[in-house]
Amino acid sequence: MNADKTRERREAVEKFDAAARQSYMAAVDRAFEVQKSGAKLSRTFFENWVQTLEEGVEINRRALEDLQNIAAEQREVFYNLSRESLGAYEGFVGSLDAYEARISENRETADKP
């Protein structure tokens, strides 16, 4: 009878040992799955972050290009405006010369008897 109890105890201990090993292996497997899932989540996060940065760079590049185009257009407009202003000023000075010449002519004709 003593041998039967010893055998039963040994079988119970072996079953308990097997169950404990299975539980430990399941916990280790689950820990590795959680670790892989965390790594995948981190990778996805950083890939999205890099993509967002790249999109931001592209937006900034386009904005800078647009600003350069606007500056070139404004430079052309100011250049044309300056040329027109110079032309108007030269015309004004020319009209003053013509006015002065006319006045001089009128004085000369008025001074002649």
Results as ranks from 00 to 15, higher is better:
N2A: 06
D4W: 05
R9A: 08
R10A: 11
E11P: 02
A12K: 09
V13K: 09
A18V: 10
A19G: 05
R21H: 07
R21I: 10
S23E: 09
A26N: 09
V28S: 03
D29T: 06
R30K: 14
A31G: 06
F32Y: 15
V34N: 14
K36A: 15
S37R: 15
L41Y: 14
L41I: 14
S42H: 15
S42N: 15
F46R: 04
E47P: 02
E47M: 12
W49V: 11
Q51N: 08
Q51V: 00
Q51A: 13
I59E: 06
R62Y: 01
R62V: 08
L64G: 09
E65I: 00
A71M: 04
A72H: 02
V77C: 03
V77W: 00
N80E: 02
N80Y: 01
S82L: 10
S82H: 12
S82V: 11
S85P: 00
L86V: 11
G87Y: 09
A88D: 12
Y89F: 10
E90Y: 10
E90F: 11
F92I: 12
F92E: 15
G94Q: 04
G94P: 01
L96W: 05
L96K: 09
A98V: 14
Y99W: 10
S104A: 11
T109S: 07
T109E: 08
A110F: 05
K112E: 10
K112Y: 01
P113N: 05
